[in-house]
């Protein structure tokens, strides 16, 4: 019945497959970069406007109520606040690229030095939280998805909901009591810089951060896994008799991971918020604590610098997350 039908399905352009893959990846990379840059720009604008729009005159607050008009004007001039707002933004914007985020109103430290001293501590806590979160969420989601027992799924949903509902500071206090005081596994406070040494101080705050991270990640991963398990290609993997490790990775996890990875990268913002609280409770010298101090004393340049850095970190990780999601699973469409 089909003798006349041509047997090839050539679909147009003769282009090499690898090239086409690379071109698609490049498109995604440039598209995402452009978007991240524009979001990054707006982060800078908002951080800049935040001070200018907040009620109260920072100069008067900084100098105290007994300052003379002359000293206020002098300070204003020194800070460049007597210039037009556009010129101020221009200076601010140019200075960011010079690595100059301004100076604290109170101490003479530059904001750049505040960031470079304290940001690594915060990033370490976040990195460890993410590491622990992934380490816990993947096995939990896999176990629940593969168990045919309804009770397991039910318990999983119940526990993740409870864990999500518990606020971080509550878990932190419970953790401190249990691990810090009862078991003496973790010091209650203090910090020691340097990589392996600092782990004993940050493992507990990172674990507490997981209290909100793991439920979200494992729930999303679990539901993606359930969808994947219904897909026909999983059967193909079984029939081909691929090895167990390969089956779990290529046929179950990898096709399910993209939403979780993208979500994780968006959750960096939430993690930063959580870490600010952890740093205060565990007296860690992270940037979150500096932020709180700066907000307390209306040290606007410091607040502006830290908020901008936080924003840029979130933008950067969203970019990485989107790219990673695409690399894991080419079906992911990024519009």
């Amino acid at each position: 019945m089909a003798g006349v039908i041509p047997t090839s399905l050539s679909s147009g352009k003769e282009e090499d497959g690898a090239n086409r893959n690379r071109a698609a990846l490049r498109r995604v990379f440039y598209g995402r970069s452009l978007r991240s840059l524009s979001v990054g720009f707006w982060v800078m604008v908002i951080a800049f406007l935040m001070i200018r729009l907040s009620p109260g005159d920072p100069v008067r607050i900084a100098l105290g109520s007994e300052a003379t008009e002359a000293s206020v004007a002098e300070m204003r001039h020194k800070l460049g606040l007597d210039q037009s707002i556009f010129y101020q933004f221009y200076r601010y914007f140019i200075n960011i690229f010079k690595g100059d985020l301004g100076y604290s109103y109170f101490s003479n430290r530059s904001v750049t030095s505040v960031v470079t001293t304290h940001l690594p501590v915060t990033l370490m806590i976040i990195a460890l939280s993410i590491f622990l979160g992934i380490l816990l969420a993947i096995p939990i989601a896999l176990f629940v998805a593969l168990s045919k027992n309804q009770v397991t799924t039910y318990l999983f949903r119940a526990f993740t909901s409870i864990s999500l509902a518990l606020p971080g500071f509550f878990l932190a206090v419970v953790g401190l009591y249990f691990f810090g005081i009862k078991l003496r596994w973790a010091p209650a406070a203090g910090y020691e810089p340097g990589f392996p040494g600092n782990l004993q101080f940050i493992w507990l705050p990172a674990l507490v951060n997981c209290g909100s991270l793991v439920p979200v990640l494992s729930r999303v991963l679990h539901s993606s896994l359930m969808d994947t398990l219904d897909e026909e290609f999983v059967e193909t993997g079984v029939i081909r008799g691929v090895s167990k490790i390969r089956f779990y990775w290529s046929y179950l996890l990898r096709p399910s991971l993209a939403p979780t990875v993208v979500l994780l990268s968006y959750m960096i913002g939430v993690m930063i918020g959580g870490t600010v609280i952890m740093e205060t409770i565990f007296s860690l010298p992270g940037i979150g604590r500096e932020l709180i101090t700066a907000v307390d004393s209306r040290d606007y340049p410091v607040v502006q610098g830290i908020v901008m850095i936080f924003g840029l970190i979130v933008v950067f990780f969203s970019f990485i997350g989107d790219l990673l999601g695409y690399l894991l699973d080419r079906r992911v469409t990024l519009s």
């Binding site: 026909e232 290609f233 290529s250 096709p255």
Partner: peptide, 12 residues
């Protein structure tokens, strides 16, 4: 398998 669209593993 039945469905051509869902047969091959999408990530390989």
């Amino acid at each position: 398998p039945q469905s051509a669209l869902a047969g091959p593993n999408p990530v390989l």
